[in-house]
Simulated scan of single mutants.
Amino acid sequence: MNAHKTIAPGTTGIEGSGKMLKAMVGIGVLCALLIVMTYEGTRGRIETLKAEALEAAIFEVLPGTTRMTIYELGGEGIFTPSDGKDRSKTLVYAGFDEQGALTGIGVEASGQGYADIIRILYGYDPFTQTIIGFYVLESKETPGLGDKIEKDANFLANFDALDVSLSDDFSRMVNPVIPVKSGAKTKPWEVEGITGATISSRTIGNIIGESSARLIPTIYQQQDNFKPHHKPLPK
């Protein structure tokens, strides 16, 4: 006859499951701690690299700039000097040449692209009332398609002198910046899109259209308030 062993209910099976659960919880806690430690250990370096990239972008979208001052838009609608640390604020970057003359204002803006949020910087010249530069700060658009917004020469030419002229009382833009299809641009305030990257290029036109309509009248009216108070940009 075969001997049968009887396992008391609620012992070995439950004990084994309990040990496995404790092990999984322990591994989860350890992984979480490692992630937090890694984030905290690299956050400072990441922020430094972002700041350096932003300064380089300002130098690019505002030709002739050798130094800059950060300004934030306060609740009263007035731009005042800022350290730029509070990213919840509306920040702009006033560029200046070696003689301290204003070269233009760098404006950050963002919007939903095809894949994710696209962050950009554009340069505004209040003397010509045009956008004179454009730079992609952050994008996850499809390589070979959506990322053409960063390197397509015809698309970038939109921002050599994009018209953002204001009304006689400087309270609004005469013509809002709008995106159009590739080959359809006929006006200096239109952003011509890219074939094969329609959504991404249209997003850029919409981002700049919304941002410029909201901020450029205020920037223009307060241009005399922008003064050089910051370190020179890297050359």
Rank of each mutant, 00 (worst) to 15 (best):
S182W: 08
T218Q: 14
K22D: 00
K151P: 00
T6V: 12
D224W: 03
V25P: 01
S212M: 02
K185R: 15
N175W: 03
Q222W: 09
D169N: 14
I7C: 00
D160C: 00
D97A: 04
D224H: 11
G16S: 10
T65V: 07
Y114L: 15
C31W: 02
K227Q: 15
L62K: 08
G146Q: 11
G26P: 00
V177W: 11
M20S: 07
I46D: 10
V107E: 03
A51D: 12
S167D: 15
K22L: 15
E60V: 10
R45F: 14
V29N: 05
D168W: 01
P126G: 02
G144R: 12
G123I: 10
G41C: 00
Y122S: 05
A161N: 10
S110E: 11
D224P: 00
T80I: 12
A101S: 13
Q221A: 14
A161C: 04
L233N: 07
I27R: 01
G75W: 01
K151L: 03
R119C: 00
Q129A: 09
V107S: 00
D160A: 13
E138Y: 01
F127I: 03
T6E: 14
S82Q: 05
Y71D: 07
L102D: 07
K19H: 04
S212L: 01
I78H: 09
T186R: 05
D163L: 04
P234Y: 11
K148W: 00
Q112H: 07
M173K: 04
P9W: 04
T195P: 05
K148T: 02
P9M: 00
T90H: 05
T12Q: 10
G18Q: 11
T65D: 08
K231L: 14
S201L: 01
T130E: 04
L156M: 13
R172G: 06
Y39D: 10
V174P: 00
K89H: 14
I35W: 09
T38Q: 03
G64N: 07
G100I: 12
Y124E: 07
D224M: 08
P232T: 11
F127R: 11
I14S: 04
M1N: 08
T80F: 07
S201F: 06
F59E: 12
